[in-house]
Design a protein around this nucleic acid. Sequence first.
RNA 1: GGCCCGUUGGUCUAGCGGUGAGGACGCCGCCCUCUCAAGGCGGAAAUCACGGGUUCGAAUCCCGUACGGGCUACCA
Length: 489
Amino acid sequence: MPESVRVRFAPSPTGHLHIGGARTAIYNWAFARRHGGAFVLRIDDTDPERSTEENTRAILSALRWLGIDWDEGPEADGAYGPYFQTQRRASYDAALARLKESGAIYPCFCTPETLAAKRETSRQAGGFSGYDRTCLGLDGATVAARLASREPHAWRLRVPDDHGDIVFVDAVRGETTFGIDAMDDFVVARSDGSPTYNFATVIDDVEMAITHVIRGDDHLSNTPRQILVFEALDATVPVFAHLSMIWGPDGKRLSKRHGATSVEAYRELGYLPEALVNYLALLGWSLDDKTTVIDRATLTGSFSLERVSRNPAVFDAEKLEWLNGVYLRELPAEEFVDRMVPWLVDAGLLSADEVAAMRFWLVELAPLVSERVKRLDELASKVAFFFADTVAIEESARAKVLETEGVREALDAVAEVLDALPDFSPAAIEQALRAVPETTGLKPKIVFQAVRVAVSGSTVSPPLFESLALLGKERSLDRIRAAVSSLAQ
RNA sequence: GGCCCGUUGGUCUAGCGGUGAGGACGCCGCCCUCUCAAGGCGGAAAUCACGGGUUCGAAUCCCGUACGGGCUACCA
């Protein structure tokens, strides 16, 4: 690429960061990183009704959590600011003045009511339903007089009469053509002087020297209009790349009724940001014909618009879960502990100031559970028995496992054997426990399950011998003996 | 209505004129195994939306049709 790449992500702070928006951000970011360019974050906060500072903060924090860093934008400065549209009004006004000067735009005094009525009738008749250029036909004196009388008016971009069809090469869709006949003189400035979206966006992209506009499919039809603005401004038209939508399982646009849709919600559900980024990157882009697990470095090193898919993608929560499990398993124990601790603290299993002292123990615990969860939020219930003083034994587990002929005696024997162990290591425990069945006549599995239930309260737990070792001799024995006495008649 | 865009197993995708249409999730089975996972092996699952062309040859190129989506605002 000749000039240095500059891309932007321009969310509207009318809500939290949506999964679809996150994917757009990821693609922009990865593209910028890949080409050594700049990733600009711009806040499209021109809708005063719905935009809030709180949403802006939430979006920034979601992006940070994902690890999507921006080179310019809020809290990052940059030479092309300000990065909030509400602070860029002077730019829009200046551009408007320039276009008035050049005659590229003209005032329109038509009222919204008459426009709506005309639109309705022409649509009924079929065919073109754009503006009929009533106000373009006004003579100079009339316009001057009506302007002078401060009659309310919007400003419209005049589509040049000699303009051919609008053709551009979309980086993901290829050549796309819009017939010029279907283009009407659209409004660039409202009667209150404020710029419309299609105008403001272009001014911003021009002034921020954006080279590639990577955005959602829903803007594809806006592109010819925006190209007209670039041309009126005599600015270089950037490369456009339109991403298809993300759908829910029913083929409809992803929305709340499909479940979690915000990045924040996935964080709260116990997903790892690297897994979410990987999953989203793959939702419409592929590295090759076989790679599914793609780390950040690979993504930023190999992302390309050519490999972005053109069709809409259904969001598959199950695949995301699987991928999250993959990342969880790959985490080194130390790292896993760092991610796990907040969840355990939140669940009240330990307090923040106990963590340092327990670190070594937690690092031992990590591998026992890391390959048994797909989300961080499953952790607390799986390890709770390690932290409790006593365990509540599940009724079904008691009935199915403990109340079996010979189990009481076996547990007695287990307690005795374990008590005699000088070394309470997993290996020693295993050796000792395997010797018990021989004396009781019960199958090893039966005995192991009985110990598992006595100690963890459930028929499902992390590996038994390691768990006993981690729990410690004393607490293990207490629980086994408690189970025995609860069985005594 | 008009204008654009899209269509490969249930899902995400590879493919870019000649393939047994490959991979991943999910599903099923077997193995491993102290439970659960993880892992290993194997399997079912795609008339490449449909119909016409072009070509010796089409999932791949062209044209229609159907279905889905977007835009068509003084919303973004």
